[in-house]
Design a protein around this nucleic acid. Structure first.
Lengths: 223, 223
DNA sequence: CCGCTCTCGGTGACTAAGTCACATACCCCG
DNA sequence: CGGGGTATGTGACTTAGTCACCGAGAGCGG
């Protein structure tokens, strides 16, 4: 599913809006808007990305799996952002073990490598846009390393519950999904949640966690 | 300690050698060769890098510390390579929590940001060089995440012992240093090494580990 | 509405890893 | 050769992850 673009989408990216007209033009002209249904695997081992992707709508989860079946979420790409690994892959011509999966229905702009290359070469602003996004992801990866290596699981769970719930009282996730977020095992999550529940901080139902005492969780999360 | 360069060093970087003369010239002219004694902190929190660094000689360790005093080595930069985080910092104008430390006496070429920017803009080859290096580091970081999150400590220890020993029979490291490599605690390393020793795979002396049965370690390392 | 199946969550028993506190051993330097 | 600083050893305990299995809900076809 793809259509040629008019370039209207450029306005959705603050970093691109102020580009010169002669930069915007080829960008708009050569790129395509693609729609991807939820669950689509966007890239993964043996499936190298071949376009530079700008997300217009939806959310993409980038994760890594171990051979023992455990998984860990590295980061998410949401509307208005770009996928760093895709970028890295384009830049370095190298493949990654990680995989990217559409968490929702996604619409995105796909910029072909040639256009990407030539824009990088021609436009300092475009470069800045790409690099800044890139830089942000790396910071993020470093944070993931720090958390996996050094942080307690109860703290990380509290952080993730709050993040996944957002402003809602309930987070619609299974224990297994939480385990995959943190890169741990389902049983570990189940036991931690039991402890939270024992303290009256959360309530569990099949496929959802209700936050009863947000403050207590926030307290733990920043410990 | 810094001296203006003649540009001879460019020959040490295969990726730079085939650059056009009009690219090499400003590179050689505006950059400086710097010497850093072992232990120098090259960047860290509150100490942003301000130059693009190309390593001529020596080795730089990039690591992250936790508030509980544990540390983990993210990667090393050795002669002929560049530091990705430095690059990212230049590109994204963002700061990192990680710190870089000279493991040996180091000599490096420091390219000022302006020169770096202009070369990125002008030379596709230089871009390729920078991006390829960058890309490689990211692959590496992903591998670190996978190992910290999923791999057994005995396996990681075996891998690191072999790596640190190289072709030598002995690796001159303390248990604490090994612990910092892996992002774990010293006691954990001590106990694992005792187990290796019990099996006759290694022998320990103060500040050094001797490899007795390389094959057994290699076997474990790739398990 | 019943029963089947599939996913989700609960649990016990065990192993692996990390923490804390403290005891030794070793080495160098004066 | 003695003492201080660094390196390593160890026990007791907590936290995290693994394995094997159970039972409860939810959805669906008959």
């Amino acid at each position: 599913m793809s259509t040629k673009t008019s370039g209207d989408w450029i306005a959705q990216f603050p970093g691109l809006m102020q580009l010169d007209e002669q930069v915007k033009a080829p960008l708009a002209e050569s790129s395509r808007i693609v729609s991807l249904p939820v669950g689509t695997r966007i890239f993964g081992p043996g499936q190298a990305p071949s376009n530079y992707m700008l997300l217009l709508e939806g959310s993409v989860r980038v994760q890594q799996s171990s051979d023992t079946g455990r998984e860990i979420v590295l980061y998410r790409v949401s509307a208005g952002e770009t996928c760093a690994l895709t970028t890295a892959c384009l830049m370095g011509y190298e493949e990654y073990q990680a995989e990217a999966i559409a968490e929702t229905n996604v619409s995105a702009v796909a910029v072909p490598r040639e256009t990407f290359d030539s824009l990088i070469a021609k436009s300092p602003d475009f470069r800045r846009f790409v690099f800044a996004a890139f830089s942000e992801r790396i910071t993020n990866l470093l944070k993931v390393i720090e958390e996996v290596a050094f942080a307690r699981i109860d703290i990380r769970l509290a952080q993730n519950l709050l993040r996944l719930a957002g402003d809602n009282r309930k987070a619609a996730v299974t224990h297994q999904q939480l385990a995959s977020e943190l890169g741990t095992a389902r049983e570990v999550i189940s036991r931690q949640l039991q402890e939270f529940q024992r303290r009256g901080w959360t309530a569990s139902s099949r496929g959802a966690i209700e936050i009863m005492e947000r403050e207590a969780l926030e307290q733990l999360a920043k410990a």
